Simulated scan of single mutants.
Amino acid sequence: MLYQCPDYGIDGFEPADDSHRNLLYGVDAPELRVLAEHHTPVNSYFILHDQAATWGVPGAPQLRAVHLSRDLDARTFEVAMQEFPLFAMAESWLLDRRCPPDAIEPPDVHVAADALTRALETRVRRDAVRFTMLDSYTDDGVSPQVVVMLRSPGQESGPAFRILWERYDVVSGAHTLREGGFTTIDEARAWWTAWQQGDPPPLRPPVPAPRRGASSAAPVRPASTGLQGRCR
């Protein structure tokens, strides 16, 4: 499938102010291609792939979630954008901005390999703002994979730190997503270091939270720990 540049549907509209004009410049670039989108007269939601990211900062997120809203009376628009390393994380951000739950369909290049992956991605999509993203690394080399480190919102959510690990099988064209729980940041960093060195131990799934309704996934607020990913 050939993915196209985004069409924001703003002919005859003006940016609400200069900040939205500048944001539009950032998301209206030829290297950004649509992976998924949903439109209403007022809102447009996109998940974009930055094709130029592979030549930029090593390990940087390659997905962009974009929400464009239109004021039909004033004929103005506003833009919001956030970078994400995982498709489900981009979905969670769009859902938090009132995108209908079933409106964004994964593209044909993003196929879950098994039931565990589908279940975990459902939780990541659902729990949009509960977890803080501490770091991520996207490795799009011979064996593409993405690793994300998260901090839990509190003890009721189980282990304080999580790792999400997505691996893409170039033969089958499908990906797996796995989750591990860590009590301390040092434990999470130790796993990250082992992954950097090419020999990570199996991820231990987080113990289910005892509190009813608590969840165990999903990252949208970025913060940096200074962790470094693997060099290409």
Score class of each variant (00 low, 15 high):
152 S>L: 00
112 A>G: 12
176 T>W: 01
131 F>H: 11
135 D>F: 00
184 T>D: 11
96 D>N: 14
166 E>Y: 04
96 D>W: 03
167 R>A: 11
132 T>D: 15
86 L>V: 05
147 V>I: 08
154 G>I: 04
92 S>C: 04
117 T>M: 06
127 D>E: 11
169 D>P: 01
185 I>F: 13
161 F>P: 04
185 I>T: 08
172 S>C: 07
127 D>L: 03
183 T>Q: 15
146 V>R: 04
122 T>A: 12
87 F>S: 01
135 D>H: 10
153 P>Q: 01
179 E>I: 09
133 M>C: 07
122 T>E: 12
92 S>G: 07
120 L>M: 08
179 E>C: 12
100 P>L: 08
150 L>R: 09
120 L>S: 01
173 G>M: 06
136 S>N: 13
95 L>H: 08
117 T>P: 01
168 Y>S: 07
109 V>S: 14
187 E>S: 12
159 P>L: 12
131 F>Y: 15
118 R>T: 14
93 W>K: 00
128 A>H: 02
163 I>V: 11
92 S>R: 03
152 S>W: 00
116 L>Y: 08
116 L>E: 14
95 L>D: 08
162 R>V: 00
141 G>Q: 14
174 A>I: 01
189 R>Q: 13
110 H>T: 05
145 Q>T: 06
182 F>R: 14
141 G>A: 15
181 G>R: 10
196 Q>I: 12
164 L>N: 10
129 V>Y: 05
184 T>H: 09
92 S>D: 02
191 W>Q: 02
152 S>M: 01
184 T>A: 14
136 S>W: 02
183 T>V: 15
160 A>S: 11
101 P>T: 12
90 A>Y: 00
131 F>C: 07
104 I>E: 00
180 G>N: 09
193 T>H: 06
145 Q>E: 14
